[in-house]
Nucleic acid binder design. Structure first.
Lengths: 242, 242
DNA sequence: GAGTGGTCTAGACCACGAA
DNA sequence: TCGTGGTCTAGACCACTCT
């Protein structure tokens, strides 16, 4: 006799985890806020405390939550430190990360190019906002970059009162209600063109590290495209492999 | 009354984990071999199965072990695939990793320079072996690199019967008894010099991605230094941030 | 069917932080 | 002192692999 066994078995803790992610997505658990205790969550979801714990532990290892013994469980938010340690891999010759200083060059809106639309999951010619800025580390210009984000995600960003904060991801989270949770970067080497050379105060043709980043919010939805050109005379991009 | 509470509290599962790492280090659990079952380990270490599980889970998330339901727990070994997916971040324009083909240029021994000694934790002028090779992806020369490893770790490597295998980490593991478990890479952009240009079949001065890697074995001990120069016209270095 | 890891539970106790 | 997360246990049952 044919009996179909668990055709679509999904562990309880994963179902619980998905419920939790949906609370993060819809911001009923907002960045920075505290979650109910394990016991309360267990009662609410109708599972054991151990099962809740397993879901919480996975979300913690994905950096969506932070847990702290004696205090509670909190939704991870973008602080200067988090942006620095998770989303900026440039280090100096001592392997230390420095807080960058940003100088806005321009901010404007326009139509998404074909490749921008592809990277951001938009339809071509939809409106996007482009930010160009330069960044210094220890008072040396090191990065010149263009940031592209859909106008529908950040309405009015092109008329935002200046200066823009140093950490855009904090701005997205606080003023526009979406959180960057992960990113992918593609690195290549290029020669500085005239404009880049001026921004970085280097000779035309100087080799630069080009970093193309796509940033994602919960559930791997792309929200921002960023192309950075980095002068690597005194800094390098650190990558850890396991 | 003054009572000192847990002046150096260390969870049981961490102690178990350290014991397990020492078995990996001394190769009483060799790469590719199967571990005793959870129940046996629990009995042997005198702790509960849950505690053993927690230690095993952490080692699994650090890629030191692999677990497979119904089969058992195995010591991670270097296969072509593992080297490819964990230790080679170059992708093509479709974001796919390709198996590289290696061409040996030279292999020789000499004295460690000051910086090599620093990176490898050696004393200056100790003997090292240097391997220079070029690597192709889809028949296009993409990488030219120098690999430096202490002669004391790989005695006789400079007289090893050619050709060397494509995956050096497999060789280290099988013939020299040490395993690469993690690595750090520092990326910068440089201009191709004459020699590099010839190896990569590009013009002098072409911008190249320079990747300096230090590879570590268990317990973060450095074992290999590698400096790769990559032509990034048709490939890029992919980095995932979380 | 036997043996493995994976899930789930219930409960005890400990370390930590804040009031 | 209380509430939180962190550790540890013991046991039941399930899913998977191999023979």
């Amino acid at each position: 006799m044919d009996e179909i066994k668990s055709p679509s078995f999904k562990p309880l803790y994963q179902q619980v985890k998905e419920l939790m992610v949906s609370r993060l997505t819809d911001r009923s658990w907002a960045p920075g806020s505290i979650l109910p205790s394990e016991a309360l969550l267990a009662a609410e979801f109708g599972v054991s405390q151990g099962t809740v714990r397993k879901a919480l532990d996975e979300l913690t290892s994905e950096n969506l939550l932070r847990r702290s013994q004696g205090r509670g469980t909190f939704v991870t938010e973008h602080t200067a430190n988090r942006s620095l340690f998770h989303f900026l891999n440039m280090v100096d010759t001592n392997n230390e990360k420095q807080i960058p200083e940003s100088h806005l060059v321009s901010i404007s809106s326009g139509s998404a190019t074909e490749s921008e639309a592809r990277d951001l999951g938009l339809i071509e010619s939809m409106s996007v906002i482009r930010i160009q800025r330069n960044r210094s580390l220890e008072n040396i210009p090191v990065i010149t970059e263009v940031i592209v984000v859909s106008s529908s995600l950040t309405p009015g960003l092109d008329n935002y009162p200046l200066p823009l904060p140093n950490t855009l991801y904090q701005l997205y989270e606080k003023d526009f209600g979406f959180s960057v949770t992960s990113a992918r970067e593609w690195l290549t080497a290029v020669s500085a063109n005239q404009l880049q050379a001026e921004h970085l105060d280097v000779e035309l043709g100087t080799p630069l590290l080009r970093v193309k980043r796509i940033a994602y919010t919960y559930n791997a939805q792309p929200v921002e495209l960023r192309i950075s050109l980095c002068h690597t005379a005194n800094h390098s991009y650190l990558s850890e492999l396991t």
